[in-house]
Amino acid sequence: MPHDHPHPHNKPLSDVELRVKALESILTEKELIDPEAIDLIVETYETKIGPRNGARVVAKAWSDPAYKERLLSDTTAAISELGFSGVQGEDMVVVENTEDVHNIVVCTLCSCYPWPTLGLPPVWYKAAPYRAKVVKDPRGVLDEFGVSLPEETEIRVWDSNAELRYLVLPKRPDGTDGMSEEQLAEIVTRDAMIGTDVLAAH
């Protein structure tokens, strides 16, 4: 292994690291996996698939009303038009934020997340505190993210416990009328597509 990585070498491996290494060894010895295949999967999600994909979907929906209509009615196919499909995005639902409605996504049972459009989930999304609190006190969670919504705003929390994966279509911020689709994609944050962020006016 090359020594250009920053971790200290005098520390024992954590329980999780040991477990992962043990699993990889067993799967390799049983000839179920080639470890290079695992490296390729990790590399793909580290460098190729991430929230910039989802941002392109959002920017196109904001710029092209016909696309937005397809995105809301035939979601998986519309996202696939942009080349984003596959594992953990096989059956997609897009929920739209408006003046009156704010949507937030969670998976209370584990960490289900739309990989083709958002990549792998952030640690907090997988952690018990977020999963337990957002279904009971979403405004409290939003407050922790620095987001405050008017009391009149209807809150919808989506628990993606089954086989559907959810992407929030954020409300297009004020002051972005002159922006191109490419410029719009730049301002869309990952958290806005989970629902824990609201995009600021420009």
């Binding site: 996996i33 295949a37 793909t44 594992v87 953990q88 059956d91």
Partner: peptide
């Protein structure tokens, strides 16, 4: 092995719907 690097891109791009 069952899972080899050459099939990874196809697996990721296709997935496996439970539908």
């Amino acid at each position: 092995p069952t899972l080899t690097p050459d099939i990874v891109p196809g697996l990721i791009a296709t997935g496996a719907s439970a539908r």
